[in-house]
Design a protein around this nucleic acid. Sequence first.
RNA 1: GCGCCCGUAGCUCAGUGGAUAGAGCAAUGGACUUCGAAUCCAAAGGUCGCAAGUUCGAAUCUUGCCGGGCGCGCCA
Length: 646
Amino acid sequence: MITLKETIRSVLYERLKDIYPIVPEDIDFLYPPQAKFGDLALSLPMSLAKKLGDNPRRIAQKMTAEIGALPGILRMEIAGAGFINLFLDPAPFFRGRLASSAAKKGALRPDERKIIVEHTNINPNKAAHIGHLRNACLGDTLVRCLRFKGETVEVQNYLDDTGVQVVDVVYGLMELERKTVADLEKIDRFDYYCWDLYARTAAYLEEHPESYGRKAEILKGIEHGREPESEMAFAVSRRIARAHLRTMKRIDASYDVLPCESSILGLKFWERAFALLKERRAIYFQNEGPNAGCWVMKVEDEDDREKIIVRGDGTVTYVGKDIAYQMWKFGLLGRDFYYEPFAEEDGRTLWISTARPNDRNIGFGRASRVYNVIDGRQSYLQKVVVQGLRALRFEAQAEKSVHFSYEMVALSLRSLKYLGIEATAEEREKGFVEVSGRKGLGIKADDLLDLLEQKALAEVDRRNPELPDESKRRTAAQIARGALRYFMLKFARNSMIVFDVDDALSFEGETGPYLMYTVVRLNSIFRKLEERGGTTRADLEKRAAESRVSFDILNPAERDELWNLIVTAAKFEEEILHSVASLEFSHLAKFAFLLSQKVNAYYHRSPVLAEEKADVKNIRILGLYFVRGALEKALDLMGLSVPERM
RNA sequence: GCGCCCGUAGCUCAGUGGAUAGAGCAAUGGACUUCGAAUCCAAAGGUCGCAAGUUCGAAUCUUGCCGGGCGCGCCA
């Protein structure tokens, strides 16, 4: 569809440019709301009406004559206030699409040299919760779509292994639990253990202000590599990071590299950035006022506001460190980390940064564009970081430093009941409860996935009792993942999800399992086709390539329905580009759902295997084959995989 | 107080300038000897928070107001 639109646009422009005061961008297509209005529409007559001082319908009349015949267009009609509706010639269009989809050549081209997507970024001090799942689902889907577009993408998952959150858990382990590093080995489900310990320690620290001295000592110890605090923090963060990776593996999210805060400190990234910030006068030393003794940066758009970058005691704030890190991502720092293998998955190595020099010649970073998937509450800080790049006169990089923000996941009151927690009066008033790792309030990612899997397994078992257990379990895991990923994608990123366990566990209606089920059934049709008639996938591809299709052999109702289905599926690439450009993957989700609804309705009315007329059967097969291709790809980009049976 | 986001069907949400505003859930009625009912079909459900403005055309853009959320630290 993209190619076709471009072709028509350039023909239209050539024919109309001398008659009307237009530029190529004025020729914009829209999709008519109903099939009877055709497949594409031009609103040009209406937008020209004022300029020409004429009424739109008369312009449309005249313009239609001036345009003449268009490639691939059967006829044009004037409708409504002055639309020119274009009707595609179905058979050639479908032939073209079958041929190009068989060749897997899209109209998509990369725009960047290299893109970094940073997502997940969970503090390595406790189990992951549902809010983290939203982050990973959005981030991983962005990665898949960018790669589909042809971009080179590097996936980073930042590990804040020296932050206060880890410090709290280290405090809990050492001071409250009196554990040594060796003891940790014996703890089962370490991430769950720390979930509770962290909540308990946070509460303890709040109630015992006298413990602050020891806490500060631990923080210093970790930052300066002093034992035993440093070793403990290292053990905790690595062990939790592995637990997070296992959890994310369940939803099929993966990463290339884990850059660590400890390496940033160890390799003195900040010192280098600090020197540059001073040199380029992006920050200045404040001598008076409340911020006296600090290095500060001016924040634009707000009157006389200063953001502290270096504190009075000489330590650097989060924003300062993040500016240095962001510079590294663009290759502006002039230094790199060292790397060690952290894990192997599917034959690929996941690397982790280290400050210890080694000879491995491996490098990350140096991107031309960066997406940071971080929740919307950090918008202000992200804005300040980008301003930091600007103040350093890295204008181009600031421009391509994108905060992919999303709203938080809160808990519904019903979900709270499920956790066995009583809502406060204020929470009842609001109708939801904010997830909080500090209070241990939230639903753990693995618990949710377990619940989904358990429920899916019961369904699979009921429907396919003859399947081997292993295959049932694998299918249940796929269904759980599909349900979760679709759930996380179907909402616009800026709307808060009030998470309800029952809604999220549903497998009916607009859900991941619905989409998966659609493809499973389509596959089943093709499987039966092969069993009964010996039509293999290769035969289909050959038939698609030859494809002497004609829509005229169908009755008008089916002809319209099938044509509508094909046109919808043909918008697939556009939907991906639209989703990537707007960072709104609910578009992709809705598209896949709409296409599923249409194809389900279609083959319900127009059976394939039982059809006796060979040519009718043939076009139905090719239609479903084409739609299945788009649907499979859409599901794959959302991270849904399709089981054999379900 | 300032900044960002949200307000669309009973509920949960799509829909960023185009034609009669769409889904799912819930509730109602119907379809399984048929390519799998995790499905499909039908009917029902709307002053798009309110007001003004811009436009040939506004749920969509602008302004004001009302209601809700989130930020605004020498925490991250």
